[in-house]
């Protein structure tokens, strides 16, 4: 998928663990893992909003578009 999820980088910058973020935004660690590994097909605005709020960042800091060529 040409959309890359940079959640790991943001978590490292904020010095936060995955399970802590999952707990704060109210999703399971399994779902957060799906998002982190790029297996997710879609992200709800509500989830994105909660991630941005907790990590104090913009959606563009988490999601990146890379051309597949």
């Amino acid at each position: 998928m040409p959309i890359i999820v940079n959640l790991d980088t943001m978590l490292e910058k904020r010095n936060m663990k995955s399970n802590e973020l999952a707990e704060r935004i109210g999703i399971t660690t399994a779902n957060l893992s799906i998002l982190k590994t790029g297996k997710a097909k879609a992200v709800r605005f509500s989830t994105l909003e909660a991630i941005c709020r907790e990590l104090d960042c913009q959606p563009g800091d988490i999601l990146e578009f890379e051309n597949e060529t």
């Binding site: 957060l32 799906i34 998002l35 997710a40 992200v43 709800r44």
Partner: peptide, 8 residues
């Protein structure tokens, strides 16, 4: 269904 399951 798969898309729904993989929607976070």
């Amino acid at each position: 269904k798969e898309e729904n399951e993989l929607t976070v």
